[in-house]
Design a protein around this nucleic acid. Sequence first.
DNA 1: ACTGGGGGCGCC
DNA 2: AAAGGGCGCCCCCAGT
Length: 528
Amino acid sequence: MAFGAEGDGEVQALDGTGGPRRVPDLAAEIRELERTEGPRWVWESTARDYPRLLAAGVRVARCHDVELTEGLLLARDGVFGGPRSAAAVLARRRGVEPPADRPREDQPSLFGGAPPTPLADVVAAWRVQDERLGALRLLAAAESAGGLAAAEMSHDGVPWRADAHDALLTELIGPRPAPGMRPRLLQNLADSISAAFGSHVNPDSPQQLLKAFAQVGHPVSSTRRWELRKVDHPAVPHVLEYKELARLYTAHGWSWLDAWVRDGRFRPEYVVGGVVSGRWASNGGGALQIPKVLRRAVVADEGWSLVVADAAQLEPRVLAALAGDGAFTEAAAQGDLYAALADAFPETPGGPSRRDKAKIALLSAMYGGGTGEAVALLAVLRARFPAAFDYVEEAARAGERGASVSSLLGRVSPSGTAEYRELITTAEGRRAALSRGRFTRNFVVQATAAEWALALLALLRLRLRDRRAHLVFYQHDEVIVHTPDDEVEEVRAAVAEAAGEATELLFGRTPVVFPLHTSVVASYADAK
DNA sequence: ACTGGGGGCGCC
DNA sequence: AAAGGGCGCCCCCAGT
């Protein structure tokens, strides 16, 4: 049964047995109904309202999130970035222009504040969506579950040792500087760079760097790392080191620590479905770009552990399951897919190993690479694994002509605009077409991989419901569970079972396996 | 003083 | 080894 909860403290059973009821304490009411009925809650926005429930100590198992669902339905109709509120859903149904979504701070809330969305509107919007879902039903449920998991992870936070973070920064770039100053070791590097060039150069300025390299007889077309690495000049090692450490300082230095870590927890804000492919994005805090070196600051509480699990070779396995290529699927039934493919590729003395060749060929096929040596490797892939090759090739062709493509569960990519279709008839349009082809080629794999990972997350979340262990981090193909030591084995098992269940849910009975690398560690830095 | 594009790099 | 896909965030710098 579904229950609507919205407005100024109202709930309603959605099986036709009764109208809306106003309740004095909505959080308490939801807690009780969750216990006795276990419904799928229908509400407008998990991101907006669930944090308040969590703060009140209430968690729910399932929901239908009107806004997330509308995002999926709109994409199916070729609309991206349109308003997704209940009011927008109802306006579209009536054939009138939907109102823009209100800015977050003006939005109504389950708990007062701005004028609430009427429960009747949310219920009506749900009915509209429920009728329209069709093949998107499973994805909408998964996306909504993702919304719950995201809010819960933000609420619980990643255990983060500010002292370890500070010590690491001090070791790498020197102690925290006075405002406006560079940390000592960064300043030393900047000085070395100027000394090597024989003139003052600000390494934060790509333009100054370009000019400086030109003046010392080493013109470069950009100051990218791989470009500079080719240059033989004494400034280069200092520049490369400066870039690496300066990035750590600006993006994850002390101001980041001040802004994002409190009471031993890093609480990022996830944006569920924030990427067209269905991957999540994050809003502030850079939750999905934490530098590896900082993993040392992620440390389980005393008496607790981190269970870190990441899916191995997820994307090529997804391609295997999607394409159903006999020989390729057989390789994907093995623990090391690339090794299982290696035999198909020729040995060349002094060149990459056969396993590396298999990997290069696969990555090129999935990302749209294929220059230089990869050309020959792609030809091998095409000859030996035609169905897998054709699967991504067909997606690329569709993209090039401006069509959209879909993931397994029905997430739809943006299609080419009218301008795009015009453009590709011209000679200059070829570049744009190739670029779009690379995008759609990757979309079918990346979006389906995101669905597998989302299913894993959702199913694992349900398995952990009655435990003290809880999910604290999720990043594309990886989850971290913070667990009391005495639940470690149960959590390990839960992760493995959830992965199996996710595979079955998406692909049914497939020979393809989706192995997880699972580590139980005190610090994230020790995983793998 | 603010804004927005570009360059560059962190993660997958 | 380099080069393809997806992001967010920071800096610089030129435009207002």
